[in-house]
Design a protein around this nucleic acid. Structure first.
Lengths: 144, 144
DNA sequence: GCCTATAATGAGAATCATTATCAACAAGCC
DNA sequence: GGCTTGTTGATAATGATTCTCATTATAGGC
């Protein structure tokens, strides 16, 4: 229904896959919550509507199509959130205790500097730079 | 022998643990290579001298004592490198393909800006900020 | 509407990094 | 020497993730 959904459907079509009910479920759960969610958390968030096994597969498909982005955290847990072009560019506060992640936006001037830097990095190193993300590590309110 | 080793020994003593041969092995392997290493990679780097099981335990001890820092990557793999106070502050190029990590240093002016920002963040969010790290994602030379 | 080819799903087994367990061992101390 | 406590190595257990495969849904062509 929302504009986003159209864009997602298109993106999936380009990738040659369907935008099925299960996949819509996962996407809308990710849109509902802000901050990345793991497969298990998504499974819960959807009240068990989609089995864990399918959540994993769906996330892989969505990642492949560039609809979601992974974020690797402590204890081998991978959390996903809507890709930058859908959710906007932002950075993360990561709790070193429980792995929870909060989104933050940088003041425009600093963001501009970062952009410029990332551009330079690409030429220094033999490295084709894509995105960038600033992670601030610390302890969240609950773990303090 | 090097100054570093003294500092590490002290740090471990403060934590109430010994700086044993196995632990020295792991530390020197981490110092030898630049960029973070996983338990398995360390095991190899040391030619199997220290069994994997002990590598994991050693890394946990070293992390607890603040001698090394973890870096969580794709496929649930955690890589470790010498802590900031031993290796200097730096940032990472992360290959989204193979998970390899290269270290980079930021130009001083940008680093200063970052420091300032991280300080502010701590007050905005109910979050006690510790370190920060900028991750630039892309494809490394080998995976290109 | 009905078939068929193909994509997608669910349940459970398999994999792989990591963690815990526990018996054997070493270091420091009386 | 014996005691206490920290450390190690081998192996079993755990937990997130991936794979497999039989079943089900979907899109097109008729």
């Amino acid at each position: 229904m929302p504009v986003q959904d159209r864009q997602i459907e298109e993106r999936l079509a380009e990738a040659g896959v369907r935008y099925t009910a299960g996949r819509r479920h996962v996407v809308s759960a990710l849109e509902r919550v802000d901050g990345p969610l793991s497969a298990a958390e998504l499974h819960l968030e959807m009240g068990g509507a989609v089995p864990v096994s399918s959540v994993y597969r769906t996330l892989a498909v969505l990642e492949e199509a560039g609809v979601v982005e992974p974020h690797h955290g402590a204890r081998g847990i991978t959390r996903y959130e809507m890709a930058e072009w859908l959710a906007g560019h932002h950075h993360h506060l990561v709790c070193i205790e429980c792995g929870a992640v909060e989104d933050i936006e940088l003041p425009a001037p600093l963001e501009v500097e970062l952009e410029r830097l990332v551009g330079q990095v690409s030429s220094w190193a033999s490295f084709s730079a894509g995105g960038h993300s600033l992670e601030v590590d610390g302890r969240c309110a609950r773990c303090r």
